[in-house]
Design a protein around this nucleic acid. Structure first.
Length: 570
RNA sequence: CGGGCUGUAGCGCAGUUGGUAGCGCGCUUGGUUCGGGACCAAGAGGCCGCCGGUUCGAAUCCGGCCAGCCCGACCA
């Protein structure tokens, strides 16, 4: 490819809304254009990079027995009625009607369509296992699209779905995909972690997210320094052991007047207690039913864990009215004793490590002191309902957990029969009995992976592509246009490289050297070959490695070989 | 959905007490330059977000709407 006729243009300035490195740089490098909120066009440079990511994905999946399909982006509402998600899925699902007034939606994911596709073909256990995937544009009407490709409404996703005869086999399929994803992101040249992930309303215990490590990531993960344990903070477990106190606390519960003191800090300092010696009573609506969750004053309640523990669809903090109703007091004075009948009380197990707590009295302006959780709280359940913290011991090996920020670029999920059962995706097993297929689903955000690569790999000058997913591996830059020797040398090296299969672009634009250098650094080609008259006359060209900034001079005829070797290391 | 902010040339912005629009980048043409975003000269490019109101006159004042961004809430 020659730059003079290539459809791209670089910018010094960026639109006001671009905030993050990937958004700013992809715009400045002329890779993407916003068409509407959260909706972008991919220009040739971006598409080249996307295709490289897609190729890696295809190779890794195909070699593991997956088969590619392509499903419609527009899906009939009735399929979603069948799975039960038509009403359940929020406004993220873009719904619309056709001319006959029938319901349709733009696919945010394809469980329904794939399940329908498979059930129409599936009759015998002999057809399983099956793993189908597609690479396709998805649409989710995000509340707040932002950060360019990182959280768009329209995005490119690879989604795969596995079908197995039973749970054990489904778990094998899961493992295969887990391995495939590790291979994909490794080949993309990204630094990432596979982390334990919360499963949300699906329930169950099996899900991993693939997180590209980057400061701008929206997710927080905790990763052990000594073993392979990594988990999303929503899911991460602290290895801290809670030991019960030897003697039970005093039996004297007293009521203390705490006028207007609603926060943990206010109450703790008034009572001269450490915040950890307060019991925070939080009222949640779990699938619209109020539930009280008790955590220590210095801890944060973890809604994901509550949701997982209760197997609920939705967990949200209760509104003020509900709190008043179940506690009989203003917000800020909730406590475990004297709640309205029938409210389940969940106690975070860390609370059992001490005695002599203070808590709300369920009476406006009053708190209780001298609480011994063992004896004074009628817990329905206890468990882990708080966040693990950086510095906590690892639950597996006792090492120390360290916090990272990550960008979720993939997730693997064991589904069980959540879709296959209501949608009757069944087959006849080897005993002649009807069985329901056991499913898994596996996503990779392709466009987000490209953005994440930039978030992770850039500097002040621009993008620093991992060679495997760079739009071009090499740029040849002739400077001092009009000098035939320079131009011919550049042209020769370019053709030479192209002939041997290197992805190369020739910057034959009639521009000043500085502009070409800056553009090359901005777009982030891993290797630059600079042909200037002074060196060329000595039979030399300069090679610059984008990542390190390292420059070297090599003989013109050796340049192609040197480049090829360099690329292997990038 | 709550709070804040912004809509003026492709992009970034200025525009005073209301008088019919400007700067930088980019673009076109010519010339001089040419190893880290050159310089000179001459150009092209605007429904000032939309609708209505006030006024002799509105980018500017008033009302409504629309769009975008930031913070929060939300996010199988």
């Amino acid at each position: 490819m020659k730059a003079a006729s290539y459809f791209f243009k670089t910018y010094k300035e960026v639109p006001r809304e671009a905030q993050t490195p990937s958004h700013i740089l992809m715009h400045r490098a002329g890779m993407i254009q916003k068409l509407s909120s959260g909706i972008y066009s991919y220009l040739p440079l971006a598409l080249r990079s996307l295709k490289k990511i897609e190729t890696i994905i295809r190779e890794e999946l195909d070699s593991r027995g997956c088969q590619e399909v392509l499903m419609p982006a527009v899906q009939p509402g009735e399929l979603w009625e069948e799975s039960g998600r038509w009403n359940y899925y929020g406004p993220e699902l873009l719904r619309f009607k056709d001319r006959k007034n029938a319901d349709y939606c733009l696919g945010p994911t394809h469980e329904e369509v794939i399940t329908d596709m498979v059930r129409r073909n599936l009759t015998s256990y002999k057809q399983l296992p099956l793993n189908l995937y597609q690479i396709q544009t998805k649409f989710r009407d995000e509340i707040r699209p932002r950060f360019g490709l990182m959280r768009g409404r329209e995005f490119i996703m690879k989604d795969a779905y596995s079908f197995d005869v039973n749970e054990d086999d489904a778990k094998k399929s899961y493992k295969i995909m887990y391995d495939a994803y590790n291979a994909v992101f490794k080949r993309c040249g990204l630094e990432f972690r596979a982390v334990d992930a919360a499963t949300g309303a699906i329930g169950g215990d099996m899900s991993h997210e693939f997180q590209v490590l980057a400061e701008t990531g929206e997710d927080e993960i905790l990763s052990c320094g000594s073993c392979s344990y990594s988990a999303n903070v929503e899911k991460a477990v602290s290895g801290k052991v809670v030991e019960k106190p030897l003697k039970s606390g005093s039996k004297d519960i007293s009521e203390v007047h705490t006028p207007g003191m609603k926060t943990v800090e206010e109450v703790a300092s008034f009572l001269s207690l450490d915040p950890s010696m307060l019991i925070k009573t939080l009222i949640y609506l779990v699938d619209d039913k109020p539930v009280a969750v008790l955590v220590r004053g210095n801890c944060e309640a973890n809604e994901s864990k509550i949701q997982a523990f209760l197997g609920a669809n939705a967990v949200a903090p209760a509104d003020e009215e509900t709190v008043k109703r179940v506690t009989g007091a203003e917000v800020g004075f909730a406590g475990p004793r004297g709640l309205k009948e029938g409210i389940a009380i969940l106690v975070d197990k860390q609370i059992y490590g001490d005695t002599g707590y203070a808590c709300g009295a369920n009476k406006t302006d009053y708190h209780l002191t001298g609480i011994d959780p063992e004896n004074d709280i009628k817990a329905d359940k206890n468990g882990d309902f708080t966040f693990a913290l950086e510095g906590d011991p690892c639950p597996h090996c006792g090492g120390t957990l360290k916090k990272f920020r990550g960008i979720e670029v993939g997730q693997v999920f064991y589904l069980g029969t959540k879709y296959s059962s209501p949608m009757k995706c069944i087959f006849i097993d080897n005993e002649g009995k009807e069985q329901t297929a056991v499913m898994g689903c596996y996503g990779i955000g392709v466009s987000r992976t490209m953005a994440a690569a930039i978030e992770q790999n850039h500097d002040d000058m621009g993008i620093i592509w991992p060679a495997a997913i760079a739009p071009f591996e090499v740029i040849v830059i002739p400077i001092q246009g009009g000098n035939d020797l320079v131009e011919n040398t550049a042209e020769n090296i370019y053709s030479e490289l192209k002939k041997s299969g290197v992805d190369v672009i020739l910057d034959d634009r009639n521009l000043r050297a500085g502009v070409k250098f800056n553009d090359a650094d901005l777009v982030g080609y891993p290797v630059q070959i600079i042909c200037g008259s002074r060196l060329v006359e000595q039979g030399l060209v300069e090679i610059k490695v984008r990542k390190t900034g390292e420059k070297s001079e090599v003989k013109i005829e050796e340049a192609p070989e040197v480049i090829k070797e360099m690329l292997l290391a990038l």
